[in-house]
Design a protein around this nucleic acid. Structure first.
Lengths: 143, 143
DNA sequence: ACTATGTAATTGTATTATACAACCATTTTC
DNA sequence: GAAAATGGTTGTATAATACAATTACATAGT
């Protein structure tokens, strides 16, 4: 593989992440930080899940996700369903309010993306999306 | 623009950033966190620069970069050159040790990228790199 | 059946990256 | 030359995270 291409990917990823994280932390997008947003996404699209499963999904420590989900519950975005087979466990289910907040947030994020991609062709955007998705999938298979 | 494509990009970017930041902070790559790595990159490829310029480049607060560069100096990766025309200012220049550390770190990062892109064609990788770069450029023009 | 060990989750504590505000020392402007 | 602006540092607060200890329940081995 061409070294130059790899270097470009490596550098641009680093830059992307640097810039995006400095925007998103502290000046959080709407009401939800990135963690909260993705937790809600996960619960909405893959159904109720426990803390452990969510932590695994994002490669975060369970304690971190425990606090994050507690915050979501406190805001009324999710609620707990005790696991009928296991007295220790429960799963987190989305509420209407949570769905609303997620959708609102997603709209804001999309607006931002649209601005950035203003000058892109449909084709180019599609390729970019596909490759990002593929990259994420490949990345999770590693490690 | 097709809504579905935008949603995919938005989601995959969020996932990418979530995963990558949880890997890189706390389990930092080698000796350099992402900030330090990009600061060294910037100094190496664009020459000596002051704290303010570096902060602008990464959209970080000056105080943050001041501390980060102080840490780099303390480790011997950069040194200060007082600005001959302005007694308040100076620029940060890379040292041999800094260059070495950067190169070493870059190699580790590349190794990781190579693993992820193992199954990708050269062509696909190139397109991905180009689009990432374009995305970053477009993103900086906004905002 | 009882004890061991394992496991889902929470809570305590420490660290790190960050921002904002106050400040210091110069430089520029009027 | 005084006032305002500027480059940089330091104090302080916050947020996200990890790791360790703990709690409460579950499972396995004898």
């Amino acid at each position: 593989m061409n070294e130059h291409v790899l270097e470009m990917i490596e550098l641009e990823l680093a830059i992307l992440i640097r810039r995006t994280t400095s925007i998103s932390s502290h000046k959080k997008f709407g009401n939800l930080d990135r963690s909260a947003y993705l937790l809600l996404h996960q619960i909405i699209s893959n159904g109720a899940a426990g803390v452990k499963a969510l932590a695994g999904e994002f490669q975060l420590d369970i304690s971190t996700v425990s606090r994050q989900t507690a915050a979501l519950e406190q805001k009324g975005y999710v609620y707990r369903i005790p696991d009928p087979l296991d007295g220790r466990a429960y799963s987190l289910q989305i509420t209407e309010l949570g769905k609303k907040e997620y959708t609102e947030n997603k709209r804001e994020r999309l607006t931002r993306i649209v601005e950035v991609l203003e000058s892109w062709s449909e084709e180019e955007s599609k390729v970019f999306g596909d490759l990002l998705k593929k990259f994420n999938q490949c990345a999770i298979q590693e490690q």
